[in-house]
Write a protein that binds this DNA or RNA. Structure first.
Lengths: 182, 182
DNA sequence: CATAGCATGTAAACAGTTACATGATTAT
DNA sequence: ATAATCATGTAACTGTTTACATGCTATG
């Protein structure tokens, strides 16, 4: 996927909220941000090194004793780069729904197989909804500016609405595929 | 994106519905399948060559005169490969919502900028809904088996529900961001 | 004292994109 | 004639993934 590199802005964005280690970024990716952004663990560290070379983030003056937990802070230039990116209109995201791809070619297989896929999808959406609820209550008790709070709420809200739509669809679709199978 | 290659199954799947040229595949990608699958034009032709080498598709015996429009047909082995893939549970899709990424870091910029992004998103969703309506009426007048018809309807239906959810969210989000800005 | 989680990285491979290139056919 | 669309490809690049590697720290 040779589009514009966005990993850098994920890192920069998180660091604009305070100093972070690579691990912090990875954890955020697993928890809070998981429902709208995916990145693999090992793509973080090379990016950290690169951003430091470019002067967009800076590692805190290391006390040599504790070799672990390299915490980075965003620089003024880093903040400027982030603002610039934030101002650009977001490009349409690359859409790839493997379930629908299989469904649309489903003629070549058994309806029961497809119903199974849909039920698996349903389960994942239920799990996603649970994580969204958790994210929501985390937001509720995080001290932050009025603006930041609204932004997080909006983010979670889109996740919820879309997940709810998928859930409703999956329930109906599974039932309809059952009827087709006999 | 070094996950399992799926372009091959897109091609194989479309060819399971009848002979297709590379261009046909590209057009399908632009029209019918655009709302759930993206692929660039030029990734099709190399895949065609590869699938032929692997014996999963076969170019129709070419009459040497008309050098253009190489039409391919799926082979028995191709059909088997497709069925195998269809039986595997779909992997969760990689999620990357750039709008939400910007929104969640929006603290570092002006609310009006974000409202603009949301309105742009709204417009894209409206356009998507129009295309889904078109896809729906195309499905309605395509002769196909009862099963195939249901599958296409289900596919479009998920697209619609999700798009509707996004639309509703975007309207509310834009209004809320306006209020924040002043 | 073992195991789970914390924490940081490197190297190779690859899927898919971007940019480039070419020519036929059809409609205005 | 001109433009748009049809139609097929190649080459280079690159962002991201996969797999590998290492060692500390807290807890039961």
């Amino acid at each position: 996927m040779a589009r514009k590199a966005k990993t850098r802005f994920l890192v920069l964005g998180l660091m604009s909220q305070g100093p972070r280690t690579g691990y912090d970024v990875a954890v955020a990716l697993r928890e809070a941000n998981a429902f709208f952004w995916h990145e693999t663990f090992s793509s973080i560290y090379p990016m950290l090194a690169q951003l430091e070379r470019e002067g967009l983030i800076r590692a805190k003056p290391e006390r040599r004793t504790a070799r672990k937990r390299r915490s980075y802070t965003i620089t003024a230039r880093g903040r400027a780069a982030l603002r610039l990116w934030l101002a650009e209109p977001p490009e349409p995201d690359v859409v790839r729904n493997e379930l629908l791809l299989k469904l649309s070619f489903g003629d070549a297989t058994d309806p029961a197989v497809l119903a199974g896929h849909v039920r698996y999808y349903l389960k994942r959406q239920e799990a996603a909804m649970t994580r969204l609820d958790e994210a929501d209550s985390r937001v509720a008790k995080t001290p932050a500016s009025k603006e930041q709070l609204l932004l997080w709420r909006l983010t979670v809200d889109l996740g919820r609405r879309v997940t709810a739509a998928r859930l409703a669809w999956a329930k109906e679709a599974a039932a309809r595929l059952d009827r087709l199978g006999g």
